[in-house]
């Protein structure tokens, strides 16, 4: 029996439904860490780049990809780690950036800090710390609504 292999486009769609384990409102595709999807014969090869080299979510991400692909009937899967070119927040999708803001996390800006408070849109914001609850975030606060918020670091 010959079974049609799912197309690469289909697989990208499936991957776009796998949430980031730490910020589940965005997908792994939104995060920009899926670098390549291709068939090598009967083996599906997915290339993933880490966000931060010590990010504890990396192994969970690989597990989530495996589970999702197995769930869609993929039998032979090979996950490749790619370090170079190094991940950059420029690879976040536009959809991902707006989902982050709705969720309460200010998306990365090349200026190095958030342009506005994700809660009230005030531009009067101050940095509390360069680091935050996960490697990808920093802590900021809003001088208008007085709420603290996470900022997705720009790297």
């Amino acid at each position: 029996m010959v079974v049609e292999k799912p197309t690469v486009t289909q697989i990208w769609k499936w991957l776009d439904n796998v949430p980031d384990p730490e910020i589940p409102v965005i997908s792994l595709v939104d995060l920009g860490i899926i670098r390549d999807v291709q068939w090598q014969g009967d083996t599906l090869e997915i290339t993933v780049t880490p966000t931060y080299s010590g990010c504890p979510a990396t192994s969970i991400i690989n597990l989530d990809i495996e589970l999702a692909m197995t769930g869609h009937g993929i039998k032979n899967l090979s996950l490749k780690r790619q370090l170079s070119p190094a991940w950059t927040t420029d690879w976040l999708s536009e959809k991902g950036r707006s989902k982050l803001e709705t969720y309460g996390i200010a998306p990365p800006q090349t200026a190095g800090g958030p342009d506005r408070c994700p809660h009230c849109q005030s531009t009067d914001v101050q940095r509390i710390s360069q680091f935050g609850s996960t490697p990808c975030k920093a802590q900021w606060r809003c001088a208008d609504c007085l709420e603290p918020f996470d900022y997705f670091k720009c790297i």
């Binding site: 880490p50 931060y52 080299s53 010590g54 990010c55 504890p56 680091f131 490697p135």
Partner: peptide, 11 residues
Amino acid sequence: NIALDLIGQTQ
């Protein structure tokens, strides 16, 4: 967080 980056680089 800095420790985490450094341990990641160690790996």
